[in-house]
Amino acid sequence: MTATPSQTIGRPNGPKPSLKGKSSRGIILADRAATVVLWGTGVLVLTILGAIIVHFALAAWGVVTLNFVVSDPSETALGGVMPILWNSIYMLALTMLIAVPVGILGGIYMSEYAGENRLTNAIRFAEEAISSVPSIVVGLFGLILFVDDLHLGFTALGGALALTFFNLPLMTRLSEQALRAVPQDERSASLALGATKWQTIRHVVVPLAIPGLITGVILTAGRVFGEAAVLLFTSGIGTPPHYDFTNLDLTNPASPWSPFRPATTLSVYIWKLNSEGLGVFKNQIVDGSAAILISMVLIFNLGARFIGRVLSRRLTAA
């Protein structure tokens, strides 16, 4: 693997002129050593990731069963994480409900309309600024705005809005990239046929960008799913009660469908168990929850790749 580096680029054999006056033998040794080290970094990262996956697979063995996924939490038995998993999915859906349309529309502006001017520059700066703000600061912002000032208390809605704030830049940027990747010719052709700009965007650019947009949605979703620091301060931390899914009254905080209720997600639940968990099964529940989270992240990422590939194949074939 490490023999004859740079072979692929067709480096001529024989002695090499030295750049720094070292012996050619030393240079070749350095090159080989560097190749080994660089391969080593790749192997290191894969080893760590592999070890983590194996660790949680082993830890979750016998814990994550169907029963674990569909049962309510318990302090005297292993119980399950059903309401918490539900909250994670619910928060994800609520966040994406806001972030996806706004992010894609924003991406359309940045890709199709924005000129090189101060306003665009300000939007880009805002995009970068929000991306760099620590999640705990976004959480505190949510605490003061939604929980305190708007008197919402800890609610799924406050959490979802804070998460939207946090993830909008990512969604916008990924949408912009997806839209920019659509070849310019497609736009020109559509405009030449007399379509308006908006018609071109709606019927030509956006459909062609769908694989990229879906990848963007899924990658953003993965990040929402794992976030905890934002939610600690906005959607609350507690063990959810038994959820009655037949209660469809959205204004009733007792309904699991209502956004006006505290919603502890899986990530927050791991934090809670580590902080205040009781019972002999505590560590197993944490491991099981972490395994579910990591599996979801794997599914999101592989799913994004798979769907992106299938869709782009189908669209280019059509």
Binding site: D148, I237, G238, K272
Partner: peptide, 22 residues
């Protein structure tokens, strides 16, 4: 009747009940 219980710390509890959030 639904009583939702949240942690957060004593300070959070006092602040929020004083502000009417809980």
């Amino acid at each position: 009747a639904t009583v939702t219980v949240n942690g957060g710390g004593s300070g959070t509890g006092l602040s929020q009940v004083a502000q009417g959030a809980i």
